[in-house]
């Protein structure tokens, strides 16, 4: 099943993955795929632009490491990024409650 993510969801998922620790692009995509039980597969065409955008906005910061003879770019949340993630979580929960309420799904109040 192909699921279209609403606007800003990719950034929120990336930030959520990075809240657990620094990671790099391929691993972020795999993590999202695993946590979503293969429902969300972040296309590289949207993953990397989102990463670079968040880095330019100061939400993420990056550093390079050497791995198997290649350069690898790691991302991690900044302090501002952490606050931003909290805000996005709250917004998502409110959105989910609203949508669930409309759809009559259980747990909409929580």
């Amino acid at each position: 099943m192909e699921i279209r993510l609403v606007s800003g969801t990719v950034e929120m998922l990336v930030m959520e993955v990075l809240s657990a620790g620094a990671s790099y692009g391929y691993q972020i995509g795999q993590t999202v795929l695993e946590r979503s039980q293969s429902l969300f597969e972040l296309k590289e065409g949207s993953l990397y632009p989102a990463l670079h955008k968040l880095e330019r906005e100061g939400v993420l910061e990056s550093y390079w490491t050497e791995h198997d003879g290649r350069r690898r770019k790691y991302y991690r949340l900044t302090a501002n990024g952490l606050k931003d993630l909290e805000r996005r979580r709250a917004e998502w929960q409110a959105l989910a409650r609203g949508v669930n309420g409309v759809l009559g799904l259980s747990g909409s109040a929580s």
């Binding site: 391929y26 590289e44 990397y48 350069r71 690898r72 770019k73």
Partner: peptide, 14 residues
């Protein structure tokens, strides 16, 4: 070079 290295890393992993 940063762009090339980052995407190259991703492709190699893939």
């Amino acid at each position: 070079q940063d762009i090339l290295d980052e995407l190259n890393d991703h492709l190699v992993c893939a």
